[in-house]
């Protein structure tokens, strides 16, 4: 079950992400890495308490230390104002409109996915790419988030089983182990 999107929107989102970061002989694509879950998790960040905005610290546990990334940070009142405005839009609320209205990510995604069309998943790759190229603003937004979902820490919902990092030989968060002086200077 998606966190914020409808099932139908989620399917279009997943197909669009796969088009941006496709599976190939060089590695898995966005679908296998759960990139759509990253985007859906951002859109629905306030369905969780604390909201899924900032993973905790100082370590994830993958290289030793505690699994601190799993404990998300509480937001302050002003942090919440910023992130609700960014995600939900200003919704005519005066405290969010001190510099004018803000269109939120939820609305941009809802409209962008709608414009890709209910038949998006039925198209071949060229057809999907053409739809994405027809709305470069939405494609740019989605690509930025897809990169975060593919290559960001898995606690945010993407990079499932570290597939994104493994495909590119990236070790990810290395604290508290770090790198030895020898590994730094004479790898």
């Amino acid at each position: 079950m998606p966190v914020w999107l409808t099932e139908e929107e989620y399917r279009v989102l997943e197909a669009a992400c796969e088009c941006l970061i496709p599976r190939s002989d060089r590695g898995p694509g966005a679908t296998a890495a759960g990139v759509a879950d990253y985007v859906d998790g951002l859109l629905g960040a306030f369905s969780f308490d604390p909201p899924r905005i900032w993973a905790g610290g100082p370590t994830s546990g993958r290289m030793g230390g505690e699994a601190g990334f799993a404990r998300f940070h509480q937001l302050s009142a002003i942090d919440e104002l910023a992130w609700r405005t960014r995600i939900e839009g200003s919704q005519s609320l005066p405290e969010r409109e001190f510099n004018g209205p803000v269109v939120g990510l939820q609305e941009r995604y809802r409209q962008g996915l709608d414009a890709l069309g209910a038949d998006f998943c039925d198209l071949d790759v060229r057809g999907r790419e053409a739809r994405l190229r027809a709305d470069t603003e939405f494609a740019d937004l989605l690509y930025g988030h897809a990169c975060e979902g593919m290559y960001g820490a898995p606690e945010y919902g993407g990079n499932r089983d570290l597939l994104g990092w493994r495909a590119i030989g990236f070790e990810g968060d290395v604290q508290p182990r770090g790198w030895t002086d020898e590994e730094v200077t004479r790898p």
Binding site: P58, T59, G152, A153
Partner: peptide, 14 residues
């Protein structure tokens, strides 16, 4: 102990 090796948190999310 709030700092971390987390590109999303520090580079994408202010």
């Amino acid at each position: 102990s709030d700092f971390s090796n987390d590109e999303v948190k520090f580079r994408s999310r202010y």
